[in-house]
Amino acid sequence: MRKNQIFPNAFLHSSANRVYFVFHACPSPATPSPPQRYPHPPYNIPIAPSNPPGQSLRSNCSNYYSNHLEGTVLSAALTHVPALGFSDAALRAGARDAGYTDATASSMFLPGEGAWELVRWHLVSSREGLGAAWRESWEALEEKEDMAEEQRHKVLKARARQLVVERLRMNTRAGLVARMSEALAIMAQPSHVPAALRELAWLADEFCFLAGDTAVDGSWYAKRGALATVYAAAEMFQMQDGSVEQLDTERFVGDRLDEVETLRKRVDGVGEWLGYTGWSVVNGLRSKGVRI
């Protein structure tokens, strides 16, 4: 009876190794999964460059708004945020620009939620605007199956850095850097925290997706967690950054990603050592007749 327990154990271990090998070292792109099942469309499908805000590349992510009234008014309102802040006043100004009235702006959302909806709209539309242009200029990673593991990581990191910087530049281009502290205060309100964190998670996922990362092993969480942390820290840094063209922010992003890379290597090393030592101990004990 005890012997039976040994074999499944060993089998699981080896199969885990195989899974790791198959998905991590050489992802097989031969049969792209149908898009209904798999949230990422196959990379070789060209995506229309004009992607109107509110329609994600990945439609399962962010369809908050049931009709395009909200999108029209919020887009117009964002242009008033640099002057009026994330506020009902900006929302009203946007509604007037879009041909609606003040009554539209105040009836559109639940009472008191107008400012939050503006913040969320900025987050969503920026994320969706990160867009396909990046991906087209990049060779899909899986085309180079012979690429070494370290090389892959290098490429992914470079792309992630570019994407994070691009996303931060979107804040600058929209003139919102001075207002980001306001947005942060709104996001930090208890009722908005879950949605804000979800939006951050989706942003990190978008970074990974656009960078061409297809790994589905344990590093899935680690990468997204790391990118979310780096992005949030970089946005905080950006608010205070007075350097020319915010070059300090870009350097900051690079440094943080380097740290993540270092950390990954160390964790990998420690994990490898632990795994090796652990199995050595187990096998040593087994050779002494211990039934484990």
Partner: peptide, 13 residues
């Protein structure tokens, strides 16, 4: 309950 009268050219989808 709230409803908004659409503006010309932006009818509900």
């Amino acid at each position: 309950h709230k409803g908004i009268k659409p503006v010309e050219g932006s009818a509900p989808q």
